[in-house]
Simulated scan of single mutants.
Amino acid sequence: MFNHILVATDGSLLSEAAVDKAVNFAREAGAKVTIVTATEPFHVLSTGSKQLANTKETYERHVKAEAARYLGDAERKCKAQGVQCNVVQVEHNHPYQAIIDTAKQLGCDVIAMASHGRRGVSALVLGSETLKVLTHSSIPVLVYR
């Protein structure tokens, strides 16, 4: 049914658990996996603490190092399970759109990702990349909680 699964990760514990589950699912389905992490570019005017605390160069170096760590961990999990894997780091002002665009460009059958499961006011205020992917994607989305 699924031949190519895009797995989105942000390095959080929930996201790491979703990677584990998605890799197991891919192994059982005989599917290949692409792991993606989407980062936001540096903005001079920002409310993001990582951007406020760093220069552009420091921020970019830090973000690339974090992304490489997340992707490397996920790639090792795939190899340990015998699952064919590619990793992609993309930069976009809207991470949810980067996830959807990557899935479309690579011809993925499904997008797998974690959800923090926020409800009520915190969900409205904080938003959710997962919710945005669910809302805007024409590709099926598998959400792990």
Rank of each mutant, 00 (worst) to 15 (best):
R118G: 00
Y96L: 03
H116D: 12
H43Y: 10
L6C: 02
T37W: 12
V23E: 05
V36W: 10
I99G: 02
H43T: 08
E129K: 06
G117F: 05
E91N: 12
D101Q: 11
H62N: 10
G72I: 04
H92R: 15
R119M: 07
Y96S: 12
E66Q: 14
V36N: 01
H62F: 14
G117R: 03
N86S: 15
D73K: 15
M1G: 05
K50A: 14
V44S: 10
A8I: 02
V110F: 11
L14D: 02
Y70Q: 10
V23F: 14
R61H: 06
A103E: 03
V90W: 09
I35E: 05
V143D: 08
R69Q: 13
M1R: 06
D101N: 06
V33F: 07
I99A: 05
V44P: 03
R27H: 07
D20W: 06
A114R: 03
E129M: 11
E16V: 02
E129R: 09
K104P: 01
K79L: 15
G11D: 13
Q97A: 15
E57G: 03
R119A: 07
A114Y: 14
S15P: 00
H136T: 03
Y144Q: 00
T34M: 14
A98L: 12
P95M: 12
T135K: 10
V141S: 02
A98R: 01
H94Y: 14
R119H: 12
A53L: 14
V7H: 08
A74F: 10
L106T: 07
A67W: 13
K77C: 03
G48K: 12
G117W: 10
A65Y: 06
D109G: 03
P41W: 11
R145F: 07
L134K: 01
V133D: 04
S122V: 13
N24A: 12
I5D: 05
